[in-house]
């Protein structure tokens, strides 16, 4: 078994920071781990850094400092081709949907499957199935521009899950939906989760993060504040992220993370020493 297969973590962030010019601290020393098959809700006020975090996880943005690993791959070390490989295995539902307005709903959903060279019959079958699940069957050949925002949001979600991703990143997936359609969307997410897909959902919607066993991480001003598991949340037990992570991980996962943190810490110290001494330092 490779180390990738051994790893329990789907997402692993260690001390990730990001500052946008001139001096907007989007993320400050954030550490977060989401295990394979886990559901993690990212909550926090607007501008807290949720979207920045998701953008980094799918490689749209890069951190100023820190270590990011997705599906066993360290993002900073990936070549362009490897990054594209990884992106094909991640489904992303963007906050601004990123639909092509002049294309039909079916064409928009087919997009993510076409780049993975899925057969035409598979694409047609999967598109119909997803549209039916999200109550959009009658909109299949409608141009995306002619849909309501709620409908566009569902199309973006359908596109995110269409290619059987190992990880789904969803940014405010229910922001424009009523309670009935929110339920449809969440049922779809849970179904994929049961099949093994890891979910990281950034949301304001308190009503959706009650799914048993899922993790809730709150971000405020670019920092993680107590993360909870929904069951624990109900008991009123908030935990620090560094404490809460091992609860949902195996012992092996926890050891693995400690090793990574230690290695990362050494590299940070090495960089610091090199900067001070002006020469290469062995760690």
């Amino acid at each position: 078994m490779t180390s990738e297969e051994n790893s329990q973590a789907m997402i692993d962030l260690i001390r990730v920071s990001k500052v946008y010019p001139p001096d907007i601290q989007a993320l400050a020393d954030i550490s977060l781990r989401v295990d394979k098959g886990e559901i993690c809700y990212l909550t926090g006020m607007s501008g807290a850094g949720k979207t920045t975090l998701l953008r980094m996880l799918c490689g749209i943005d890069t951190p100023d400092r820190g270590y990011i690993e997705v599906a066993g791959k360290e993002l900073s070390k990936l070549s362009s081709a490897e990054m594209q490989d990884l992106r094909r295995s991640i489904g992303v539902a963007y906050q601004d949907f990123k639909l092509l307005p002049e294309k039909t709903v079916a064409q928009n959903i087919a997009f993510s499957m076409e780049v993975a060279y899925r057969s035409r019959s598979f694409i047609q079958h999967r598109t119909r199935k997803l549209l039916s699940r999200l109550a959009l069957s009658d909109k299949m050949n409608t141009q995306a521009a002619k849909l309501s925002r709620g409908e566009q949001q569902r199309v973006a979600i359908a596109r995110a899950v269409a290619n059987d991703p190992v990880l789904v990143l969803a940014d405010e997936p229910t922001g424009n939906l009523d309670s009935d359609t929110t339920e449809l969307v969440m049922e779809l997410f849970y179904e994929y989760n049961e099949k093994g897909t890891t979910l990281l959902i950034a949301t304001h919607d308190h009503s959706i993060y009650n799914y048993p066993g899922s993790k809730v991480v709150t971000i405020e001003q670019g920092q993680v504040i107590p993360a909870q598991h929904t069951q624990e949340n109900q008991d009123g037990n908030a935990r620090d992220e560094n404490q809460s992570v091992p609860l949902s991980s195996s012992q092996k996962g926890s050891q693995e993370r400690s090793q990574k943190e230690e290695l990362y810490q050494q590299l940070v110290i090495k960089d610091g020493l090199e900067a001070v001494m002006g020469k290469e330092v062995e760690v």
């Binding site: 081709a81 594209q84 992106r87 094909r88 990123k98 997009f111 780049v115 596109r159 290619n163």
Partner: peptide, 16 residues
């Protein structure tokens, strides 16, 4: 442009 950006985001290879 939007379509090409989206192709990159969904993981289309450079050759594709």
């Amino acid at each position: 442009k939007k379509e090409l950006e989206l192709l990159r985001l969904v993981g289309a290879s450079a050759h594709y």
